[in-house]
Design a protein around this nucleic acid. Structure first.
Length: 502
RNA sequence: GGGCCGCUAGCUCAAUUGGAAGAGCAGCUGACUCUUAAUCAGCAGGUUAGAGGUUCGAGUCCUCUGCGGCUCACCA
């Protein structure tokens, strides 16, 4: 495109040609390294420790210094006349290379053609320079892959968010803290698996392509299967299939998987995101609460070494027990509205209008209450908090409370001002479940929204009998945001959704 | 989808009221045997996101388009 970039690419292609002319393959098939850079530095320290006990402290290269072979990307180069220092980085860390008199004529020629960004392999003895930098005195140098494009700036890194997300590999090369975030993400997911496996949960995989998108109320993505000539939805939840497995006799199951919702994109929403759902037979939402607070606290402890974490300007303490607050109390406390006194949508809406809220007249009572939560309550829930006992009309898959059929046994967990989990004592009465689905359909029809067909296959399964069950859904991306102190979901998803650049 | 803000060299950023588009890094040439944001000397590098308009003159003002960020709406 622009001549500057073209010129650099052209210069590097010329270097490629010169390398090939000398009969050297700039993209060889394999290279065997003996150590990662981290292991090499550790080896040097170990060897120095032993040496110190034998003799007086000596530095610099000696015949007894251990030899290593490492490989990685060159991230810096400093020419000093007859010697050249380079920084070589691999996924474990970095080490300095010293190239000088130990290289033969051919390898000195290769050294001249090496740019920042190239992938190389290097062997030699470990030593420390007089500034004590762990260094390999390179005796053998191999080009493993020539880079044809310049890397982002070494000091400021890459900061343009558009480029960071579209070319995440550059972000990972230039910004080490980004790499760390995704390493922590991986450790969190491993820790979740360990926690659940230890408790006897079975990890399962259920379909992403579904004939009807159930288990949540969200706009699905639609795709088409050609051989079957049938439309399918990408799942918006794993709930209904996991319950089928509870019916099938797996008493504890979970799935960690990608969920797709065709809705707005924001700092807290990506169209595809990762959700943990778990179901435990013979448990209720109280058992699930205990498990969740323990799980998050354990994970934080295991991954970060503490259950007190910094999130923005706040310190969040995950140590159980978390605050438990009834939804009614919470809304009353933060907005002043007691929704029990407004049993229908109209009266509640009128009350909300008094608070100068802009209220959509289409919304039913459940959605109005939801709006009260997100406007007044959610932003205030910095410390981990369970909101308990939601109105039945906003929870068609949850079982009503034994003493109050207007409420269900459901909780949502909040931390850092975000919803991170949703759980309930699962409704297992097939007849009531059918009525709830029908009721929901009626309401959606009245609101003029798209009405999904009822998942008859799920109702059929329920009719065979599902044990009383506690179910849980956790937004993994938001949990990772909390534990990595990130304010945008795009910082914890490697390739967040962006509009295609034309 | 609405509102606000942004887009200048490969990267990070300047450019006074509308008055000659600049620096650092990266690159190229040269010097240098312990540097590490190496240093020193020199060179080169631009469709100012795109299109149109106002003006003697536009990176700067106006309109439209594209992409991004924040935010609102949407969101069990």
């Amino acid at each position: 495109m622009t001549s500057r970039l073209e010129r650099i690419a052209q210069q590097r292609r010329q270097k490629l040609d010169r390398i090939r002319t000398r009969g050297i393959n700039p993209y060889p098939h394999r290279y065997h390294r003996s150590h990662t850079t981290q292991e090499a530095v550790a080896l040097l320290k170990q060897e120095e420790g032993e040496r110190e006990t034998l003799t007086l402290r000596t530095r610099g290269l000696r015949d007894s210094s251990p030899s290593v072979t490492v490989a990685g990307r060159i991230t810096a180069r400093r020419n000093m006349g007859k010697i050249t220092f380079m920084d070589l980085r691999d996924s474990s860390g970095k080490i300095q290379l010293l190239c000088g008199e130990l290289l033969d004529v051919d390898q000195n020629q290769i050294l001249k053609e090496i740019d920042i960004g190239d992938i190389i392999g290097a062997s030699g003895r470990l030593f420390r320079t007089k500034t004590k930098e762990p260094t390999i005195a390179v005796s053998d140098l191999t080009l493993l892959a020539k880079s044809l494009r310049p890397l982002p700036e070494k000091w400021h890194g890459l900061s343009d968010v558009d480029t960071r997300y579209r070319q995440r590999y550059l972000d990972l090369i230039a910004n080490t803290e980004v790499k760390e975030t995704f390493q922590v993400r991986s450790r969190i997911i491993t820790a979740i698996r360990q926690f659940l496996n230890q408790r006897g949960f079975l990890e399962v995989e259920t379909p992403v392509l579904q004939p009807s998108a159930g288990g949540a109320l969200a706009l699905p993505f639609i795709t088409h299967h050609h051989a079957l000539d049938q439309d399918f939805y990408l799942r918006i939840a794993t709930e209904l299939h996991l319950k089928r497995l509870i019916i099938g006799g797996f008493d504890k199951v979970y799935e960690l998987g990608r969920i797709f919702r065709n809705e707005g994109i924001s700092t807290k929403h990506n169209p595809e995101f990762t959700m943990l759902e778990s179901y435990e037979a013979y448990a209720d939402y109280n058992d699930v609460m205990k498990m969740l607070e323990e799980m998050v606290s354990n994970i934080s402890q295991q991954v970060l070494g503490t259950d007190k974490i910094k999130f923005g300007d706040n310190i969040i303490k995950f140590k159980p027990p978390w605050q438990r607050l009834s939804l009614r109390q919470a809304i009353k406390e933060y907005s002043g509205i007691d929704f029990d006194q407004f049993p229908d949508a109209d009266s509640l809406r009128a009350e909300m209008l008094k608070l100068k809220m802009e209220v959509d007249p289409q919304k039913d009572r459940g959605r109005l209450i939801d709006e009260l939560i997100s406007t007044f309550v959610e932003p205030n829930l910095m410390q981990p908090t369970f909101l308990l006992d939601y109105p039945v009309e906003m929870s068609p898959l949850a079982k009503v409370k034994p003493d109050d059929d207007r409420l269900v046994e459901r909780f949502e967990a909040f931390a850092g001002g975000m919803e991170i989990a949703n759980a309930f004592t699962e409704l297992n009465d097939p007849i009531e479940q059918r009525q709830r689905f029908l009721q929901q359909q009626k309401e959606r029809e009245a609101e003029g929204e798209m009405v999904e067909s009822i998942d008859e296959d799920f109702l059929l399964a329920l009719e065979y009998g599902m044990p009383p069950t506690g179910g849980l859904g956790v937004g993994i991306d938001r949990l990772v945001m909390l534990l990595t102190n990130q304010q945008s979901i795009r910082e914890v998803i490697l390739f967040p959704q962006l509009r295609e650049k034309t």
